[in-house]
Amino acid sequence: MSTLVTGAITFALGCYALASILVIVRLVRGPSAQDRVSALDLLYFHAMLVMLVLSIGHRNDVYFEAALLIALFGFVSSAALAKFVLRGEVIE
């Protein structure tokens, strides 16, 4: 793998780590439940992107499957949390 690609992967992972730290701060200090739900959704998204970057770096397809599962569970949990925040119950 070339030096440019390795540097780009390292830079991307560093940016995602910094963004995830800022999202965790919002998750902890969020003034409302809606802020916490959106921060948790963004944290799932960052985890998916990190898995995709690692897949490119390690040249392994297993990471793509893990990223797909993270995206699936992130969407379902975000929908359930949004419904709970709006109505106070998940199952009607």
Rank of each mutant, 00 (worst) to 15 (best):
residue 6 T to S: 09
residue 32 S to R: 08
residue 12 A to L: 08
residue 58 H to P: 15
residue 92 E to G: 03
residue 16 Y to N: 06
residue 48 M to Q: 05
residue 53 V to R: 00
residue 33 A to W: 13
residue 60 N to M: 13
residue 21 I to W: 10
residue 7 G to C: 02
residue 45 F to R: 05
residue 82 A to Q: 05
residue 58 H to C: 14
residue 57 G to Y: 07
residue 41 D to I: 11
residue 51 M to A: 08
residue 76 V to L: 12
residue 28 V to S: 02
residue 42 L to R: 03
residue 50 V to L: 07
residue 65 E to F: 11
residue 81 L to D: 00
residue 16 Y to F: 11
residue 26 R to D: 02
residue 32 S to K: 06
residue 38 S to Y: 06
residue 39 A to Q: 00
residue 55 S to M: 10
residue 55 S to Y: 09
residue 72 L to D: 06
residue 5 V to E: 09
residue 41 D to N: 04
residue 44 Y to V: 02
residue 76 V to N: 11
residue 59 R to P: 07
residue 62 V to C: 14
residue 68 L to M: 10
residue 22 L to P: 04
residue 78 S to K: 06
residue 19 A to E: 01
residue 43 L to I: 09
residue 89 E to S: 11
residue 1 M to T: 13
residue 12 A to F: 05
residue 22 L to C: 13
residue 30 G to P: 00
residue 61 D to A: 14
residue 87 R to D: 08
residue 47 A to D: 02
residue 1 M to P: 07
residue 69 L to W: 15
residue 79 A to V: 15
residue 75 F to D: 03
residue 39 A to C: 00
residue 1 M to D: 13
residue 43 L to Q: 08
residue 5 V to D: 08
residue 85 V to N: 07
residue 32 S to Y: 05
residue 22 L to F: 10
residue 77 S to G: 03
residue 83 K to I: 11
residue 21 I to K: 10
residue 54 L to Y: 02
residue 50 V to F: 10
residue 3 T to C: 14
residue 8 A to D: 04
residue 18 L to R: 08
residue 71 A to D: 11
residue 41 D to C: 07
residue 34 Q to N: 09
residue 40 L to Y: 05
residue 28 V to W: 02
residue 46 H to S: 15
residue 59 R to T: 06
residue 7 G to N: 01
residue 67 A to R: 01
residue 72 L to E: 07
